[in-house]
Design a protein around this nucleic acid. Structure first.
Lengths: 142, 142
DNA sequence: CTAAAGCCTAGTAATGCAATAGGAAATAGA
DNA sequence: TCTATTTCCTATTGCATTACTAGGCTTTAG
């Protein structure tokens, strides 16, 4: 699995915050309820996003989370790379594993490199604002 | 990680067998030595490939493994899907997990679907013969 | 008959994922 | 200042998967 729950939840939460931007700071409790995700688990994920300055968190009454940039300035790729650690499809391309001893002669390395580029390019081409549904977040009634 | 050692090893072994096609049946011992993979671990992987009829295995003296089709008739995608079980980038798209309850309204589902198609289409477009190096497998001397 | 090979079922150690627990620190409002 | 609310931080746990090992059985050629 390339993307685990951590990355999937993170993306859903970012979209949620983008959709509810107008409401100002949103407390974790509200996001967790809306998205059906455990509050405690979400805490970890949001902490990661805050530390990377993708979100701003504020504590205390009236606190909560808010995006630090407009939605069109977030790519899905950066959100997932941050929360997943890496989007490399195989260990061979992962940072720590700096090329195995066979990389010079490996007949399959190019496949992995191409795949890696394909994945990252696609995900870097999708921005948060493209994932906002037109009428979500307004609590409108027909 | 989308592809684990099992899939990576399987692909390398398939390429190895494609390169040494001319030598007839190749014993596991030889492949393992050439590829630097534990014999016992390789056994599992080769068993999977044999059961799926991608390889033919024969026991006894003079036995070993051989491809059942010409290299251009194997795609990387089918080899990896077989050995990995699935190439789905997220659990949401995996067979057993038949769509979560939120799939109707999930703003991120399309991203995963597109990514899944991208990955599978690319890997299904690469065939074994494209991975054979021109001069490998001939033990030539300059 | 024997050596060389694949086949089969388990088992295990290590890793990473998903989630939980408990409290400390900050903030707004009464 | 007190209290409720909310984020922040560190650890821990249960579980599943991955990577690999062990041991024995069966088949085949010479």
């Amino acid at each position: 699995m390339l993307v685990s729950t951590k990355g999937r939840y993170a993306l859903r939460v970012m979209v949620d915050l983008a959709e509810h931007q107008a409401a100002g700071r949103i407390p974790l409790k509200e996001i967790a309820a809306r998205q059906g995700i455990s509050e405690k688990y979400l805490e970890n994920i949001l902490a990661t996003l805050v530390r990377a300055n993708m979100l701003s968190g504020m504590r205390g009454k009236g606190g909560g989370y808010v995006l630090t940039r407009p939605p069109e300035q977030y790519t899905v790729g950066e959100i997932l790379r941050l929360t997943e650690g890496s989007l490399a499809p195989v260990a061979c391309l992962d940072g720590d594993c700096k090329g195995c001893s066979r990389s010079d002669e490996c007949p399959t390395l190019d496949v992995w490199k191409n795949l890696d580029k394909l994945i990252n390019d696609y995900l870097d081409g999708v921005t948060l604002d493209q994932l906002i549904a037109p009428n979500r977040g307004y609590d409108y009634v027909i």
